[in-house]
Simulated assay, not measured.
Amino acid sequence: MPLRDHFRPPVSRQVSWEEIHGGWPMVIVQQLKTQLPPEYVSGPKVHAGPSLGPTPTAAWTAAEPSLAIETEIPDDDEYEVRVYDADRGRTLVAVIELVSPANKDRQEKRNAFVGKCAALLRKGVSVSIVDVVTVRQFNLYAELMAFLGQSDPTLSAEPPATYAASCRWLLGERRALLETWSHTLTVGQPLPTLPLWLAPARVVPLDLERSYEKTCDDLGVR
């Protein structure tokens, strides 16, 4: 079955994009459960909008702040799946990022997303980016490559707005090898299978089409 446009009718009348993005990570986790080696586990992480923690209670009173200005509460969306190596103290080894419209909104939002992915790669964590957002024309994978001082020769001068890519940085003693696998996503066409790297020589298939169709089916999207 093909990729749908979740941001426009008729699909947007049946289900919201938030429901697709909210449900998809758990479906990916369920499918990875049958593919991951026994020592690896995965879990979803979904956060939309601002999140305020509890206000601590303390007897000590702080001095007047040196700066006090009103700002917006950080509201970066997170729709992702995290994969851990349980045998190494639950070490994070891979992250699957589902891009939201907010991630592609203002420049600072895009910078935050790209910076997060770059930080993960530099720690040796493989990163997969899946972007089905049709209403914003930015390509965060291309921006990530530019941030790392690289470019993908398979991308056109105007990179596609919808795409999927897997990236990993093989860290050596003095140099590192950056490897990426990128695909253009097209409404009306099936989604690809990406490599999900767990270790330098250990990889499992990330079948986006199968998890996407299961998510759509669960939500009654035809």
Rank of each mutant, 00 (worst) to 15 (best):
E80D: 12
G22P: 05
T57R: 14
T71G: 00
E143A: 11
I96E: 04
L52M: 13
K214C: 00
V125M: 04
V130K: 01
G49L: 06
P160R: 08
D5M: 07
S128H: 11
L177C: 01
D85W: 09
L98H: 04
K33Q: 15
P56N: 08
D217S: 11
V46F: 06
A68R: 12
K116T: 10
I96L: 13
G49F: 05
R175E: 11
R168T: 01
L148Y: 01
F138V: 01
S42Q: 06
R222M: 01
H47W: 07
G220T: 02
D105E: 13
A164C: 09
T71P: 00
E78H: 12
P50V: 12
W24S: 00
L171R: 15
K33M: 12
A102H: 11
H21E: 05
L196Y: 03
A58F: 01
A86E: 12
A201L: 06
A176S: 15
G188E: 13
V11Q: 02
P44I: 07
V81H: 09
G188D: 06
L196K: 02
L196W: 03
P195A: 08
P74V: 06
R175M: 04
I73V: 14
S126L: 10
R202F: 02
P160C: 13
R136I: 02
N111Y: 00
S16G: 15
E209P: 00
D85H: 12
E70I: 01
I20N: 05
L140P: 04
R88T: 11
S211A: 10
G188Y: 04
V132F: 13
I20E: 11
W24E: 13
A201R: 13
K104D: 00
V187F: 10
V41L: 12
V130H: 05
T162P: 02
H47F: 08
M26C: 12
G172Q: 03
S211F: 05
P205E: 07
Y84P: 04
S211T: 14
D152H: 03
V93N: 06
A164I: 07
F138T: 06
S126F: 10
C167S: 14
I96T: 05
L92N: 03
P44G: 08
A112Y: 02
L36P: 02
P200S: 07
L120V: 06
E80Y: 07
I73T: 14
P25N: 06
C216E: 02
A59L: 13
G43F: 12
V127I: 15
T193L: 05
I96H: 02
S166T: 05
A201P: 01
S12N: 07
D76C: 04
N111T: 12
L194M: 10
P195E: 13
W197Q: 10
C167H: 00
T61S: 11
A63M: 15
D77Q: 06
A62S: 07
D85L: 08
G124C: 05
